[in-house]
């Protein structure tokens, strides 16, 4: 691992799915993503001798465009990696960058963040929100993320002091297949993966969350209405949902971007780190962080939290550590 190199992953597909039609989700076009990536690169220059940058290649030209604007002091290039235009690109790039970089800046939503988290080993992640269903990444200016990455990569700030290990959750089928999520693994009342994104929040029939807070979107928000779980706790919450009219209790929650809903609660179970819960599923799709992933028919599905989630950088703590340390002072 080079302490003087950071990774950059920009997901060109984040933030443009079918929720543009069904909810109030915002559109993040590639031009906007390129501007954010440019800001990340510009932010690296906040320290003397900034780290070099190794970026995931992608066919939309966002990364290449941003690299052209890199400050003179920053050496930037792309990984030599074949690209297919799918989530597999992100995962392969994360595996490589995890080996070669001190920290990785990720531009995407919860889905992109999960793909990186699954492969990046223990490399600290700086997650910048450009996706749709953003529970995990922060809505932070790219320049701030770049500056934070530079402070970590150059060792000016100790990464162990400013990172928190985020939880992960998993649904495992009897047949061996599994789905892992950073914030949530959802059980969705649909037959097919289809357009991937969850089209109608009313299709959500349950699932497990690694974090819960009423201020979050989707299943973590619904669980949060019943009790909060911090992202760093080993606990998870399992939920079974039903029609509000048929449920003994209901909660109001932010069901999707631009959409609040009254949700009926059938089951709410807080699971300790080692605990799991198993249910019979006749027909449904398992989703991870708001995206449909796996079609399930007549299976037993076990839900549990997973140890060893990714280390996420707390931006404010990076700058608090830098303040007064002299690292940002000249002369």
């Amino acid at each position: 691992m080079s302490t003087l190199r950071i990774g950059l992953i920009v997901n060109p597909a984040a933030g443009r799915d079918i929720r543009r039609l069904t909810g109030g989700a915002s559109v993040v076009d590639n031009y906007a993503k390129e501007r954010v990536a440019e800001c990340v690169l510009a932010g690296l220059d906040v320290v003397p001798n900034p780290p070099e940058v190794l970026a995931m290649p992608e066919k939309a030209g966002i990364t290449d465009g941003a690299i052209e604007t890199t400050p003179e002091e920053v050496a930037a290039g792309t990984l030599d990696l074949p690209i297919r235009g799918s989530a597999a690109d992100t995962r392969r790039a994360a595996a490589r960058l995890g080996e070669e970089c001190a920290a990785i800046v990720v531009l995407g939503g919860d889905g992109t963040s999960r793909d990186v988290a699954l492969e990046c080993r223990d490399t600290p992640l700086l997650l910048v929100s450009t996706g749709t269903n953003n529970v995990v990444p922060s809505a932070v200016d790219g320049t701030v993320a770049g500056a934070a990455a530079a402070l970590l990569a150059t060792g000016a700030v100790d990464d162990r002091a400013v990172t928190d290990r985020h939880g992960m959750v998993e649904a495992r089928l009897e047949s061996g297949a599994s789905v892992r999520g950073l914030a949530a693994v959802e059980l969705i009342d649909r037959s097919f993966v289809g357009t991937r994104a969850m089209v109608d929040p009313a299709d959500l029939v349950g699932g497990i969350v690694s974090r819960a807070n009423p201020g979050e979107i989707g299943l973590p928000g619904i669980a949060g209405a019943l009790g909060s779980i911090s992202p760093t706790e080993p606990d998870a919450a399992f939920l079974g949902l039903r029609e509000p009219a048929e449920a003994g209790r209901t909660v109001n929650a932010i069901a999707a971007p631009g959409m609040t809903a009254e949700v009926g609660i059938e089951t709410h179970q807080v699971l300790g780190g080692e605990e799991s819960t198993t249910i019979e599923v006749e027909e449904a799709v398992l989703g991870a962080d708001g995206e449909r992933e796996l079609e399930v028919q007549d299976e037993e599905v076990e839900f549990r939290s997973l140890p060893g989630g990714p280390r996420l950088v707390a931006f404010k703590r990076v700058f608090a550590a830098a303040a007064g340390s002299g690292v940002l002072e000249k002369g």
Binding site: A13, R16, D17, I18, L21, V27, V193, G194, T195, V199
Partner: peptide, 21 residues
């Protein structure tokens, strides 16, 4: 107007998108 990209090799994905549109 909203614009989305779907997998045109998946009849279900196209169908879902057009149904919403």
């Amino acid at each position: 107007i909203p614009g989305i990209t779907v997998d045109g090799m998946d009849v279900v994905a196209v169908n879902e998108a057009v149904a919403e549109a």
